[in-house]
Amino acid sequence: MSDFHSIDSRTHVRKYLYVFYSLMVLTVVTVSVSYVHLPFIAALIVALIIASIKAALVAGYFMHLISERKMIYALLVLTVVFFVALMFLPMLHHSDPGMVG
């Protein structure tokens, strides 16, 4: 239970519906773009940007991250840092110019 009680729940519901419509539109956009067959890097960038916007909408509004407590933010920042390490350090292993094997 949080401060949401005091806020008029109709504005809430309206907000959720807007997010829902945006997600639908973005889904259609990302699928349409995929039919264009852009060069791989361009397609990757477009797809990831759209996915990130969708993810931000879900996390921000459905999961109320937009008005969450500091401790949750701290936890998520920590997780993201480790996630990035896990994602990129092994890749560095394979693309290192000084690689021997």
Binding site: L89, L92, H93, D96, P97, G98, M99, V100, G101
Partner: peptide
């Protein structure tokens, strides 16, 4: 010893 490069 897995053949990692010098940078990493």
């Amino acid at each position: 010893l897995t053949g990692m490069g010098t940078t990493i």
